[in-house]
Computed example of a mutant assay.
Amino acid sequence: MRNIIKYFLLFFTVLISGQELKKDTLKYTDIETVIINDKDYEKIDYSFALKQEINFRLKSVNPYSGYEIGLRFNNNLKQKGRISNVILYLHKTESKVNLTNLEINFYKINPKTGLPEEKLNTQQIIYTPKNKRRGQVKINVENHHIPFSEEGVLVSVKWLPNEFKDVAVGPAIRLTNYTEKLTYVSFNNDMTKWNNRFNFSKKLDIYTNVMLGLEVYIKKKKKNE
């Protein structure tokens, strides 16, 4: 049984570098069924991913602005699960821009407003970039036991201050276009003021989104054979 859910992710407002549209479809591992300890259940993995539609990037961010950008993942499965991995799609960072650590956070979605609210991870999750090249990074978060509720979840990235005290830091993160506003941003570490006004697209009903990926799993009762 092969299941793949392609979700389209999102984008944010700061320095954007745009190049002519360059089709580059991201490829993902097919979903596998894995038997876990309980013999009566199976662990089903689902991948929510995104297709690159434009070759844009969020070039750099002021880490002292408390800027945080995230993508909302809707739960089309309508089944509760757990988050296993987050995927970052990084663009090439300019040579003159220093790198810094990224903080990864998860937020509960308010079913009435669609806005992120309560933070789901109780511990800080940090990714330290290894280089300035473009590429994909998979971050395993299974040990944090983060739920994937029926309302979905917002996954965000925050650039932290570095040792050089730079006011513009990388890594650069990819942006893409999609038919929904799924990207939310917040400033000044104020989690009560999320907004989804992040958009650089000039096309009607097409919106810029930040590119993130999410892998979740659910436990299903095995069918009797």
Rank of each mutant, 00 (worst) to 15 (best):
F12Q: 12
F12S: 15
T13Q: 14
V14I: 13
V14Y: 14
L15E: 11
G18N: 13
E20K: 11
E20S: 10
K22E: 10
K23G: 07
T25M: 03
L26W: 10
K27C: 07
T29D: 07
I31K: 00
I31G: 00
E32M: 00
E32G: 02
T33P: 00
T33I: 11
V34K: 02
V34F: 04
I35G: 04
I36F: 09
N37R: 07
D38H: 07
E42I: 10
E42M: 02
E42A: 04
K43Y: 01
A49Q: 06
N55Q: 15
F56D: 15
R57P: 06
K59D: 14
P63N: 07
P63I: 08
Y64G: 00
S65N: 05
G70A: 06
L71W: 08
F73R: 01
N76W: 04
Q79K: 09
Q79V: 08
K80Q: 12
G81V: 03
R82K: 10
I83F: 02
V86F: 03
I87V: 12
L88V: 06
L88E: 00
L88I: 05
Y89S: 12
H91V: 07
K92T: 14
T93H: 09
T93G: 09
S95Q: 14
S95H: 14
K96Y: 13
K96V: 13
V97H: 05
V97W: 09
L99D: 09
L99Q: 10
E103N: 04
E103I: 01
I104R: 01
I104S: 02
N105P: 02
N105Q: 05
F106G: 04
Y107V: 06
I109H: 05
I109D: 06
K112N: 15
K112P: 02
K112D: 15
T113S: 15
T113L: 12
T113I: 12
T113K: 14
G114I: 11
P116Y: 09
P116R: 08
P116H: 10
E117Q: 14
E117H: 11
E118D: 11
K119P: 05
N121Q: 01
N121D: 03
T122D: 04
